[in-house]
Simulated scan of single mutants.
Amino acid sequence: MKITYKQTTDQITTDMLEGFFDGWPSPPSTDKHLELLQKSSHITLAIDENTQQVVGYITAISDQVLSAYIPLLEVLPDYKNNGIGSELIHNLLDQLKGLYMIDLLCDAPLQEYYKKFGMQPVSGMCIRNYSKQNGE
């Protein structure tokens, strides 16, 4: 398996984004997925060179002065445990390395995973409008 990484949605089509948001009760469509990638300030995509499918992605939203927030990281189930998620994180953190703060919210069981990348647990607050989960 040969995976390439890119930081742009150039030549990415909605049919290359099938299978993401696994387990979400109301997932975004592939059109909305492409739109969220295009509107994110920073992205990295993992592409399987054999199938030309996007098999993983990570996004960041940033003011590009002091701060960034990483809302999404996902690797397709068949590609997990191959280092793709780690490579996506390393690539994105490299893009954000000049910023003061990089924030990410995750469930407690995932905190150990993110500690490997120099992140530390902090307290936070959030609002989740589940009726808007699909981006409509």
Rank of each mutant, 00 (worst) to 15 (best):
T4Q: 09
K6Q: 15
K6F: 08
Q7D: 10
Q7G: 12
Q7M: 08
T8Q: 09
D10W: 01
Q11C: 12
T13E: 08
T13Q: 09
D15A: 10
E18D: 08
G19L: 08
F20L: 00
F21Y: 14
F21P: 00
F21Q: 04
D22M: 15
W24D: 11
P25T: 04
P25D: 08
P27Y: 08
P27I: 07
P28K: 03
S29D: 01
T30R: 07
D31M: 11
D31G: 11
K32E: 13
H33N: 12
H33F: 14
L34Y: 04
L34N: 04
E35H: 11
E35K: 14
L37W: 05
L37H: 07
Q38I: 01
K39L: 07
K39V: 09
S40V: 02
S41T: 14
T44Y: 13
T44W: 14
T44S: 10
L45Q: 04
A46P: 01
I47Y: 01
I47R: 00
E49C: 08
N50H: 09
Q53T: 05
V54D: 06
G56E: 02
I58Q: 06
A60L: 06
I61T: 10
V65S: 07
L66P: 07
A68N: 06
A68Y: 03
Y69K: 05
I70V: 13
L72F: 14
L72P: 10
L73Q: 01
L73C: 03
L73M: 03
P77L: 10
P77Y: 11
K80R: 15
N81I: 10
G85K: 00
S86A: 08
E87Y: 09
I89F: 00
H90T: 15
H90N: 15
L92H: 01
Q95R: 01
Q95W: 01
L96T: 06
L96M: 08
K97W: 03
L99A: 02
Y100L: 11
Y100M: 11
D103Q: 12
L105D: 13
A108G: 07
P109N: 02
K116A: 11
K116I: 07
K116E: 07
F117C: 01
G118H: 00
G118I: 00
M119E: 05
Q120Y: 10
Q120G: 05
P121M: 01
V122D: 11
G124I: 01
G124H: 02
M125W: 06
I127P: 02
R128H: 15
R128T: 15
N129T: 10
Q133A: 14
